[in-house]
Amino acid sequence: MSLAGKTLFITGASRGVGKAIGLRAARDGANVVIAAKTAEPHPRLPGTIHTAAEEIEAAGGRALPVVTDIRDEASVEAAVRQAVEHFGGIDVLVNNASAINLSGSLELPMKRYDLMQQVNTRGSFLCAQKCLPHLFEADNPHVLMLSPPLDMHPRWFRDHPAYTIAKYGMSMCVLGMAEEFREQGVAFNALWPRTLLKTAAVDNLLGGPEVSGRGRYPSIVADAAYTIVTRPSRQCTGQFFIDETVLREAGVSDFSPYRVDPERGEDELQLDLFVRP
């Protein structure tokens, strides 16, 4: 299948993984709704919804930048309404926007706990709820959560229980909604990177360029996301995918173009959180 003429509603698409997914879809001639908060340049974070829109259109797609706070119901409703009015519908929802804080239980300020819950779990649920009436009308409707596979081993909770709870909440939406909307043919799946990615979060919060140099570019997640959302929705739902596994099954064997440091071997890359060795 192709995404030509399809409309993707992508949260957090002004930079990083969200923008990469939009750029991959644009190569097919897709319509991309950039639903994010950054309308003006940020002192530490690259890109805005407008610069992302320019890149997506240069790549061959059509873009609609919409200032969206996924914590706010009215903001999401307005963004979905604009998307439908502009492009005629929604075919794919990508819940990419996320908040991260890896503090332990005693160190984490409650406002940061609340932020992670509001953006990750609640925001993803909210966007799915508002997009679903339009996804029901699509030929091949997909909802893709950028969230990890569910694994109840204590190792994933011990060091950062609040973050794990917030991200697993997204994955639990996949588990529940895949069954809830199976008969309507709306696919709900999760996708997670095998390795660290070079993103603003890693470069600014999680160790800097030295750490992200042991990872891959967001394009690997974008290529895996494209592979998933172009599958028949009724045959692909309720799954928890890892980017590298998706692409290997699709026939990719050379992952060197995705490496941030081309001199670093595959066995030297750092695994992402929630991925077993």
Rank of each mutant, 00 (worst) to 15 (best):
F240V: 00
G238N: 08
H42C: 01
T11G: 03
M116N: 06
E263M: 08
P41Y: 02
D254V: 01
H42S: 03
M1V: 09
D28V: 09
A35P: 09
A63R: 07
E180I: 06
V84M: 11
D243C: 06
P133D: 04
S256K: 07
C173E: 11
D114C: 13
D254E: 00
R15C: 08
K19Y: 06
K198C: 08
G265L: 13
E137I: 01
D254Y: 00
C173W: 10
A97G: 07
V174M: 08
M1I: 08
D254T: 00
N31M: 01
E249N: 10
A35E: 00
T195K: 11
R194D: 01
A138V: 11
E57P: 05
T51S: 14
Y226D: 08
I34A: 03
Y258P: 02
T164P: 04
C173D: 15
R234A: 15
P257D: 06
S124L: 02
F274C: 01
R44V: 12
T51Q: 07
T199Q: 08
P43R: 04
S171E: 05
L273F: 10
F157P: 00
L175G: 11
G12D: 13
F136D: 14
G176N: 09
G89F: 04
R112H: 15
P46E: 15
A20L: 05
R158M: 12
E73N: 04
G29V: 02
A83W: 03
L102Q: 15
N140E: 06
P218F: 03
A13C: 04
R276G: 14
S2E: 12
Q118K: 15
I100D: 15
R214E: 15
L146D: 09
H142A: 10
L8A: 02
S233F: 03
A225P: 09
E268R: 09
P277W: 09
M110T: 11
S147I: 00
L191N: 01
F188S: 02
I34M: 02
G207I: 06
R112Y: 15
E54S: 10
A30E: 10
A83H: 00
E85T: 03
H160I: 08
G61K: 00
C236L: 12
F125A: 03
A99R: 12
V67M: 13
N101P: 08
M172W: 15
G169D: 09
L64W: 01
F241I: 05
N96L: 07
D28I: 04
V80F: 01
K130I: 10
D91W: 02
Q82K: 12
G12M: 10
V17R: 05
F241R: 04
S2M: 13
V143R: 06
R81Y: 14
R259D: 02
L23W: 07
R234M: 12
T227V: 09
G5T: 01
A52I: 13
G123Q: 02
T199N: 04
L247M: 07
Q184M: 07
D28Q: 06
S253Y: 12
P262D: 00
V211W: 12
P141C: 04
A97P: 06
V174W: 09
V211L: 08
G169V: 05
R234C: 10
D261G: 03
M145Y: 15
A138P: 11
V84A: 13
V246G: 00
F181M: 04
